[in-house]
Design a protein around this nucleic acid. Structure first.
Lengths: 341, 341
DNA sequence: TATAGAAATGACAGCGTTGGTCATTCATTA
DNA sequence: TAATGAATGACCAACGCTGTCATTTCTATA
């Protein structure tokens, strides 16, 4: 029933220490010994006892995912990607939703890491953008990977997976420009999330490139929520000079803007084009479906975990390129920005 | 830095055995001794080494949550509730999304439990409704709690949290009837989920009570998805005798029906009333917002975990009522079923 | 072929806790 | 005050693995 390392050792005719070496990819194991041990492991279907491993080695085989994100789709996708990688490497995933604005968030994170002896941590915004979190983690010497907004890899960001929001936002804005829009408004997300700033910058850059000076009234602060979109669109459409297109910082905001337009009896896309960002499942389900930028969250998460394991596993093959992955969300055109007839 | 049980023992002036007794809620500890130990634990911020505990006691302090549900909101809510309970009791949560239709799903679940030495398991539909899963779990003697559709507690369902879909569906149908609708259609969810059957039964019962014989053409099979709603509504509205109201088995289906109505230029609610089920966040964000039934998923999950811990923890106080919780989702009237003028 | 040096392997203690067995101390009641 | 049972402690052996270091076995060179 319960197969221990002893069983494997005697089955393979080696000492338990050698089995342990094989299990941990330690060097100094001859090829044929390695094969013998592997054969025994397979034959007996040996699965190491995680608790014993943790206790003896004083490290755990789980990584943590800390998040504070109201977007269920995003979180589920991240979990999916992280779990994929964890299963592949024999790790477990500990999820830890929490409140990023809590005053003792740093301590909370440290407690989590130390209590569960985590091997590493994956951070998404807003945690990935909080310098004091990164500092604290470095201080206690825990590996971590951040998923952040950015386009240019740099040594300073060696433990980051980058999502190039700037370029993607540039593309979306460009799409609107190509449709003939010149009065394009921008609905911001949370200021704390650098993605909002990056997307805004991409938007501005695209306008500038066309020789259009962004109208400050067309840039509306807000947060990553439906309600923010409702409010923002209402505000924009009560300006004396109204925009003919709205680029919302994410799909939720865009959905809110869509809702707002309905309330105001504004036809989409005839009177107003609306674009979102993220390609949430519901962006296909709104009326009309939203033009957006597809962010491959599952893949992003997988890469983040892989990057983490590369630093976590002591004897892993480092042959994989250590260069940082950069993801550029892709433009996805749907009816909410169709050419007005 | 690292506080062990020894430190607590000497700080409290007792033996480590007594500290162990306190940690494990064993009987035969005097109140003041207990307090002394607890004080020491607090003072030193002692956190037992989970790995050592697991190893020595051959049980773990984590429970698993197995699911296969495309509904991100539902899953996130469940996780939230389970985590709340876990934190309260010092347990960890292991999430395990997987494919319920996989042929060796039973083995997969068993492997998970044995590999991670799980203390217990929480199952939601469809897993909670698969008899062979329950049998297998009972056979290997693992505690588990199921969240299922049902209204009447019974000893056979002692490890279940019930959600009374029947009554809730009855109420929704009744609401439509009270608005004057008599031609009410029903869009089913997945057959495998008993919730779909229960809701259908509630719908039928409400009609029958009013002396209306459910029209078989008004009952459309489907699945819990947006696409299913799109298709179902289209099918219904091409009948020679069209319904004046649609009760969709969940909000996603309802959103699909809404979308479909838009495509067909059918005004909601004037020409067609639509109701959903679940109170997903997006049910407030559709146009018009959906009438639905609120299902308190976070609370349901908390109760499920509490129920599990009651059986898992050997010496926990069993004073809490052991009766099964039954949740009745509440009717939430919004514009999608407003009175037609 | 001998031999240094490196590589491969093994013996054994110990990780921090629980569980068991008694022996001892304490509090309560007759 | 003695008798009784409850509370506590001392002690040791697990739990299944890893770390350390000693030992054996190879490999390459002279």
């Amino acid at each position: 029933m319960k197969v221990t390392i002893n069983d494997v050792a005697s089955h393979a005719g080696v000492s338990i220490k050698t089995v342990s070496r094989v299990m941990n990819n330690e060097p100094s194991v001859r090829k044929d010994t390695y094969d013998k041990v592997m054969a025994a492991i397979t034959a007996l279907q040996y699965q190491p006892n995680a608790a014993a491993r943790n206790l003896a080695s004083n490290r755990s085989f789980s990584i943590g995912y800390i998040y504070d994100n109201p977007n269920a789709y995003y979180v589920i996708d991240m979990q999916r990607g992280l779990l994929d990688a964890c299963r592949k490497h024999g790790y477990e995933l500990l999820i830890h939703p929490t409140n990023a604005k809590s005053p003792d968030i740093v301590q909370e994170v440290i407690d989590l890491v130390q209590q569960s002896r985590l091997a590493g941590l994956v951070l998404t915004p807003p945690f990935s953008e909080m310098p004091h979190i990164a500092e604290a983690l470095e201080k206690i010497g825990v590996h971590f990977v951040r998923i952040i907004s950015g386009s240019t890899p740099s040594p300073k960001l060696s433990n980051c997976v980058l999502v190039d929001d700037f370029t993607a936002a540039f593309k979306i804005t460009n799409h609107l420009l190509e449709l003939g829009h010149t009065d394009i408004a921008f609905l911001c997300g949370d200021e704390e999330h650098s993605s909002s700033g990056e997307r805004l910058a991409g938007y501005q850059a695209a306008l500038t490139k066309r020789g259009i000076t962004p109208n400050s009234k067309f840039i509306v602060p807000g947060s990553y929520s439906f309600e923010s979109g409702v409010k923002g669109a209402k505000q924009l459409m009560s300006l004396s000079k109204k925009p003919s297109a709205i680029f919302a910082c994410n799909d939720e905001i865009a959905a809110g803007a869509l809702f707002s337009a309905r309330l105001m009896n504004i036809a989409i896309p005839q009177q107003l084009a609306i674009a979102g960002f993220e390609n949430s499942p519901f962006s296909r389900q709104t009326w009309p479906p939203l033009t957006t930028a597809h962010q491959p969250n599952v893949t992003i998460a997988q890469q983040a975990a892989e990057l983490l394991f590369r630093h976590t596993k002591p004897n892993a093959s480092k042959t994989l390129s250590d260069k940082q992955p950069v993801f550029i969300p892709e433009l996805l055109v749907r009816e909410s920005t169709a050419v007005s007839e």
